[in-house]
């Protein structure tokens, strides 16, 4: 292995892993069991997993067609559109949360109408958490899927058309299965981002245990009074996400 690759690779690995080691070194191992047993911790963890998963589903539902639009059509202004899709990546999440409030809040552009017509108010609800997470995480999915679609050989789609497949059939029976690895990779990134989401969530959905307090919010507030608790919560979040992602990876490589 050439050292110009090896040395920076190891440095990069250390850079990513050492902070984790710092957390592990500082973790209050003696009090860990009873801290983990606290109902608030489990509640926040459950809420995090549920909302991140639903947010990922929402992103798949909306993001895959959006990626298709960007990759496969020749809309005018597609470049601008692509730049717009990445806005949530650049926007500080807190600003994203404020933006969501301005649109979907009780007095927001669309939110006001939702509230007047249906009595639906999204801020401070679990649905609001899902929305905030989906908003921030969607670009990861769209970019991954768009890349996969661009890389996919479109002649397979032509072959499907000559066999009598409609555009929709081509999409769901040929295109989608062929870019499935890209979609999965995007979904994983999306899920991980949603799981760690803090700024947009606390701004748009607020913080209430059991309803909108996800793990990152619990970690942040724990930092205010009890840094040890924050470390424990972070470790739980890390452990769960690593287990889930490693499990998923094994499953794909098993079937691929």
């Amino acid at each position: 292995m050439p050292w110009p690759l090896l040395v920076p690779a190891l440095a990069g690995l250390a850079f990513l892993v050492l902070p984790l080691a710092g957390l592990l070194a500082r973790a209050p191992w003696q009090s860990l069991p009873q801290r983990l047993a606290e109902p608030r911790v489990l509640e926040a963890l459950r809420l995090s997993l549920v909302t991140a998963t639903i947010a990922t589903a929402v992103c798949l539902l909306l993001g895959v067609p959006l990626a298709w639009l960007l990759a496969r059509t020749t809309l005018p202004g597609r470049r601008v559109l692509r730049a717009l899709v990445t806005v949530p990546l650049v926007l500080p999440p807190v600003v994203g949360g404020v933006a969501l409030l301005l649109v979907l809040g009780r007095r927001g552009l669309a939110g006001q109408w939702l509230y007047d017509a249906f009595g639906v108010s999204l801020p401070f609800t679990t649905a609001g958490v899902v929305l905030a997470e989906a908003f921030v995480a969607m670009p990861f999915l769209v970019i991954a899927v768009e890349g996969a679609l661009r890389a996919a050989d479109q002649r397979y789609e032509e072959a499907a058309a000559t066999l009598g497949a409609s555009r929709w059939t081509v999409f769901h029976r040929v295109t989608l299965p062929m870019v499935a690895p890209g979609v999965l990779a995007g979904a994983v990134l999306c899920w991980a981002r949603a799981l760690g989401e803090f700024g947009a969530t606390i701004t748009f959905a607020g913080n209430f245990p059991g309803r909108t307090q996800t793990m990152p919010l619990a970690v942040y507030l724990a930092l205010e009074t009890d840094p040890d608790a924050a470390i424990v919560l972070s470790l739980v979040l890390l452990a769960v996400s690593v287990i889930v992602l490693a499990g998923l990876r094994d499953r794909w490589t098993g079937t691929a």
């Binding site: 007095r107 801020p123 913080n207 245990p209 307090q213």
Partner: peptide
């Protein structure tokens, strides 16, 4: 029974200012 427990006073005030 609050709808939210904000991380600081400014964030709390933002919710008021936006009418949420």
């Amino acid at each position: 029974t609050p709808v939210t427990l904000e991380q600081d006073a400014k964030a709390t005030l933002t919710k008021v200012r936006l009418g949420e």
